[in-house]
Amino acid sequence: MSALATPGGRALSAAVVSAVPLLVFLALLAYFGARAPGFLDPATLILILKQAIPTAVLGVGLSFVVIGGGDDVVAGGIDLSVPSIAVLSAAIIADQLAFHGTGTLAAVLLGFMAAVAAGLCNAVLVTRIGMTPLLATLASSTAFIGFSKLVTANRRIDLSDPLIVTLRDGTVAGLPLGLLAATALIVIAIAAVHRSRWGLRLQAVGGNRDAAVIAGLDARRFVAQSFLIAGVFGGLASLFVLARGSGSTPGVAETLLMETVLATFLGAAFSPRRVVTVWGAALGAILVSALSIGFGSVGVDVFWTGCVKGGLILVVVAAAAVARRSRT
């Protein structure tokens, strides 16, 4: 079979092009390491990881939808509402804990139920009503943000609940508890998508819907499930959002959205198959966090980071588009 032609040269140039985002990143990290003493210290690395947690969990949720819907943003799978689901759930939990004297468990449960309902709402809009995921989740996210403002009356709520404090400050064997919990979540998600029957089928639905249908899969069910799971991860992320900010803060959804989309699509650049993966999204989140902290440590104005991140989105996506073109 070795005599058969394989698309050699083209694949190579595509690989080079799609490595561009990674190279840009490595260059930036090397720059930080050289310019900012202490950037590569364990303490800074832990800080980077801790800062990355909410984005990583959200990115993992988003990656379920992208994997199940395909990575064409307009026609395929995208869920722009995951960060606003997290913000809504965080608002409910914070409000219940701070003003209604609800027990921790009950408050978290309420927040979760809202997140699952939000995911279900997206699933219905996309698979039953037939809206494109982009339009559906863009619209639903404004509703979720509206609800979270309603719950918190649009003000910041500070929390000193033991669960949140433990999630922020607690350690197990010298490692931050929040980090361990998030790692466990991500490992479970990786197992579900990349190690299970269900996950393989979800990937097939997103990778080539016709192929999945020929294999006898109910594509719509998988898409609906992916939106539900994204909602669940939005709910889980809310705890980490609360822990990072020690409470509910209005207006974080937009920043979270940008970082989540960036982390998830950046992750595709690291995957050997050049597709969005769960672990890629988590890794992407860590890199984005490293960038933010790195820029801070070399004294770059914090306002520049949005510029750099937006530019990275363009570079990542343009590289993917060029790579795809040279592959076909």
């Binding site: 943003v73 982009l134 940008m258 949005g306 510029c307 937006g310 530019g311 996506v317 343009a318």
Partner: peptide, 14 residues
């Protein structure tokens, strides 16, 4: 040839 959604999203952030 960036998709309009992601391209204009990048411009939005920048």
């Amino acid at each position: 040839r960036v998709s309009a959604f992601l391209g204009t999203l990048g411009v939005f952030f920048i």
